[in-house]
Write a protein that binds this DNA or RNA. Structure first.
Lengths: 191, 191
DNA sequence: CCCTTTCTGGATTGATCAATACATAATTAA
DNA sequence: TTAATTATGTATTGATCAATCCAGAAAGGG
């Protein structure tokens, strides 16, 4: 019926996500995207509509991937304390390994905070982290790993907030010791 | 000897700081700045050199103002717990009142993370917050308000990290309850 | 008064921006 | 083979970007 698209759209979103993640929305030009995706602008606009639409799509992809990773780590690591610690340390390691990247959700929150579509995604992502943590903490409490006096929801909201702080400080080159001190102190709220 | 400048440079930096704070670096155009400062481009470049240089100068001004506020609050509020709580709640109130603003240091960390001059300022600002908090916690420990077993430096690094998280979550419109749960949980590390 | 110096702001620069137009190529149904 | 449809990439659009140029204005020294 018609000509077939020569590139894989989902793969292109992944590549765009990576570029936006590294450089931010404003600093990623359309030419940068076209070069990274190896397509022309005609194909670009036919497939994605606009730079902004592709950004939102990349952000959705990021949130989906990160949400899956979080659920997997919390679900597969025995013991709530090792599980939470693993979640936090994996972020710290990522930040220390590449301080320019950070978290795409956090980057979006500060760079695109007044764009409604982007702000909605940020809100959704944060609630998703809260929900995953709250679920894991509730299950741990049922298993007796956490004192019955604790409120899993409150703990989850605390950890979610702390995680956002990790993403900022982790990119600020303050040294591993700084963040590990913060981490070990934060872990004490579970006791 | 020569014509005198018709505008107040320091006041112009304050106005520029406010604009960068609200809109970010990339989203603030030179025309926006000229309009806000009510000067022409000739005067602008004679006085400030470039948009980037003015941004750095605005950032330095912001860090100086915020650092002074922090020292004042910590120094004048009796009791370390009320003092820390006041520091955190004042940030929360500011974030809830104007979610688009946030913290200029945090915004810079994510938007200009790979610009060396800006990254240095972010690093300095975070260490400054850590230092102020550590000092207040040490004094409180000497007064007996905090257990001698605690490490004031570790607590300061935790609180500094948590504060950065507050600035992100505070702008994400998750509701006051979310952040207040996080806050009350965070305060327990001082016990 | 004139001279020197600096400030001022509008005009202009060249670059780059996101997005569109369009001719051509590829694909399938008829 | 033809017609219909969609993809592709280049050229081009108008807007906007940060920064420079420059002619005139304002100030103080002589």
């Amino acid at each position: 019926m018609a000509r077939i698209r020569e590139f894989d759209t989902d793969q292109a979103v992944d590549r765009a996500m990576d570029l936006f993640w590294r450089r931010g929305y404003a600093e990623t030009s359309l030419q940068d995207l076209l070069k990274e995706l190896s397509i022309g602008s005609g194909s670009f606009y036919a497939a994605f509509g606009s730079k902004e639409q592709l950004y939102i799509r990349s952000l959705d992809r990021y949130i989906s991937l990160q949400g899956g990773d979080l659920e997997t780590t919390l679900g597969e690591t025995p013991g709530i304390r090792p599980a939470v610690r693993r979640v936090l340390t994996s972020m710290i390691e990522a930040d220390l390994a590449d301080p320019t990247r950070g978290c795409l959700v956090v980057n979006t929150a500060t760079e695109c905070g007044d764009q409604p579509l982007a702000a909605d995604r940020v809100n959704t992502a944060i609630r998703q982290v809260e929900s995953s943590l709250a679920g894991a903490l509730e299950r741990a409490q049922a298993r007796g790993e956490i004192s019955p006096e604790k409120n899993p929801g409150e703990l989850a909201r605390f950890l979610t907030t702390f995680i956002q702080g990790i993403r900022i400080v982790g990119g600020a080159r303050v040294g591993r010791e700084f963040i590990e001190d913060a981490l070990s102190t934060a872990m004490r709220v579970l006791d």
